[in-house]
Amino acid sequence: MKLELDNKSIFVSLGSEIDSNRFSQISTNAKIVELHKPNDFIYFEVENISSAKKLCKKFIAEFNLGGSNWIGGRVIDEKFNFIAKVSYNGRVWDNEDWSKAKEIEL
């Protein structure tokens, strides 16, 4: 599926959260590392979905996030309308409901 954006301003969310299921099982040093990761998310303006994908992958690598930490990747327009979702593995989807989502070709 291809996606047309008609020169809209778009934004992507970047964020992480502590994996509370795993937190009680990790060492003290690993807990300190986890607590220094960003906790929550923020939206950044990007030029296009390819830029959003690159920024998400960079954020994940910078903070050494796992799939259970990653909460970002939602791409929206200036009116908060959903455009796409960048998953942890860098794939881009046209729907937030994974059972209905189709991958977007970039």
Rank of each mutant, 00 (worst) to 15 (best):
M1D: 00
K2R: 10
L3A: 04
N7F: 15
S9Y: 13
S9Q: 09
S9C: 08
I10H: 02
I10E: 05
F11D: 03
V12A: 03
L14F: 05
L14I: 04
L14Q: 03
I18W: 01
D19Y: 09
N21K: 09
N21P: 07
R22D: 13
R22H: 05
F23Y: 12
F23T: 07
S24L: 11
S24W: 05
Q25C: 13
I26S: 00
S27V: 15
T28Y: 08
N29Y: 10
N29S: 11
A30K: 03
K31L: 14
V33I: 15
E34M: 14
D40E: 07
F41I: 09
I42Q: 08
Y43G: 00
Y43L: 09
F44M: 08
F44P: 05
F44G: 00
V46Y: 12
V46C: 09
E47A: 12
E47T: 15
N48A: 12
N48H: 11
S50Y: 12
S50C: 14
S51R: 07
S51A: 13
A52G: 15
A52V: 14
K53R: 14
L55R: 04
C56L: 10
K57E: 13
K58H: 09
K58N: 10
F59H: 06
I60H: 07
I60C: 08
A61L: 14
A61S: 09
F63S: 01
N64F: 07
L65P: 13
G66C: 07
G67K: 00
N69E: 15
W70H: 03
G72S: 07
G73Q: 02
V75Y: 06
V75M: 01
V75C: 02
V75I: 15
I76D: 00
K79F: 15
F80E: 01
F80M: 02
N81G: 03
F82Y: 12
A84R: 08
A84P: 12
K85L: 13
Y88N: 02
N89G: 09
N89T: 12
G90K: 05
W93R: 00
W93L: 02
N95A: 03
N95I: 04
E96F: 14
D97L: 03
W98G: 01
S99E: 06
S99M: 02
E103N: 01
I104R: 00
E105C: 05
E105D: 13
